[in-house]
Design a protein around this nucleic acid. Sequence first.
RNA 1: UGGGGUGUGGCCAAGUUGGUAAGGCAGCGGAUUCUGGUUCCGUGAACCGGGGGUUCGAAUCCCUCCACCCCAGCCA
Length: 570
Amino acid sequence: MPETQPTRKRGNFIRTIIERDIAQGKNNGQVVTRFPPEPNGYLHIGHAKSICLNFGFAADYNGRCHLRFDDTNPIKEDVEFIEAIKEDVRWLGFDWGKYEYHASDYFERLYQYAEELIMKGKAYVCELGPDEIREYRGTPTQPGRESPYRNRPIRESLDLFRRMRAGEFAEGTRVLRAKIDMASPNLNMRDPVVYRIRKQPHPRTGDKWCIYPMYDFAHCLSDAIEGVTHSLCTLEFEDHRPLYDWFLDQLDVPSHPQQIEFARLNISYTVLSKRMLRQLIDEGVVTGWGDPRMPTIKGLRKRGYTPESIRQFSEDVGLAKANSIVDMAMLENAIRDDLDPKVPRLMCVHKPLKVVIDNYEESRVEYMKAPYYPNDPEKMGYRQTPFTREIFIEQDDFMEDPPKKFFRLAPGREVRLRFSYIIKCVDVVKDPRTGEVIELHCTYDPDSLGKKPVGRKVKGTIHWVSANQGVPAILKLYDRLFTVPNPAGEGGNFMDYLNPSSLEVVRNAVIEPAIKDVGKPGARFQFERKGFYFLDPEDSTPDMFVFNRIVSLKSKWERIRGGAGTAHTK
RNA sequence: UGGGGUGUGGCCAAGUUGGUAAGGCAGCGGAUUCUGGUUCCGUGAACCGGGGGUUCGAAUCCCUCCACCCCAGCCA
């Protein structure tokens, strides 16, 4: 899958380890990774990074990457998520081929391993209740106490474990525990639970099982069974590595993968924890996992982000073990960078202000030849955009009393109309009651088409759309979800920092008529001087175009006038 | 106060055997531009967490201190 690989690659500690392993002939020089989601929710961009990493390393070193669902806890998981996850991984551009696995496929084998552990005297059935187990576990500074069942005969544990499987006991009355060290400074080693009773049907195995393995047991063994060589996970599992290795050391396993931990991704002005994302949904802040403001893969896709941009972003942010918060600007840069050279331009007036060109004949129409991609006109060809006596310009492009560096339209001033004439504002019509500017009268310079004006310089160029030939559209202007860089670490509730204007719906936008030719559902455009937009294939209807703003263009002007707190300001 | 980690310019992050600090993003200049976009040049005072030490020489080795993150689910 060479086309899915970002162009820029750099060194990182995991790449170093992998290359060293290959050089030393470890694992016969093979590289096998895996992406192991738990099907209990939707994937977000943090998972995307992990996906890119795992599939990326596999591709780089001619190995393979497995997609394995870590479905060991039936009370939290649902098949609904399995399809969604597969769709997201596929959309990102990765193909796991035949290597799709489910931890639940290994249940029988895992069970056998558990019996092996018991028979080796390395595990026992414990009859302490949940509260007692916690109490016996001790604290970080105090060692735990051994369970009274810890030294029961192997035969007894084996018998009990088999009866657990047979369903003879109620939930919470018994668990299988590894016999390690109740005094270990690493709490994970204080006789961790290996199997628990859950009288709950499993999405994939139905009611075949009523005992389910814990993550620590299932994960390392699944990796070993599959021949994974490098098992990448996030930092919080660092403490679990001794346990990961312990299980594999005790049992007769086909391989012993190496667990390597890296810091999870964080991005400013958003949150990336399942719990918080769920809360945003539950409290109605967003419409669901696929809301275009969500940092989920589904949300980014709906917003209009491309898989390429997300892959490049993953590469750009790098890989390390230091906790960090990546600037949202980096994500925005990735999508602009990707879209800029490959998306056609169009003019779209978001908030129309009517302009009457007094000296332009009423019935006259001129078709202005405009390249879809001005940086290289022949690349995407041209469209003809109609110019008429009445046009719309952006309300923001006119100021009655402009500040210093404003070089757009103002009373008595001139501007260039993109791909058209230079006009001069000669009159301002206001609503007598509100004082609001509702119409402008201008004159055009007939000698300014396609040439520089004579005897003066016109600094500004603004976009416009014919008033009677423009096509109506609805624009959804999305912005970051939070107003502070680190809503989750600000102290207090992250919900206190919601951006009240993370979505602005513009209902009377007008686009030049060429949109009828090129406006295929799912297409992306740059609306000149505004930003990149995605023609939403789900929200659009046969008689109404609905666009999502993917990201705005960078704007020096926004900075000059002191940032209005939108996408490009901080 | 136990264990496991991490600290390189505003934000990420290279730096693998010690030789005297890549790159990206953001910012700031300027050039080009019928998008205040793009592109192109240029630019930033980095005590490499602090303090000791070893060495001709340390971000890289040793000691020590500090800060921050993770761990007491029959979650993953």
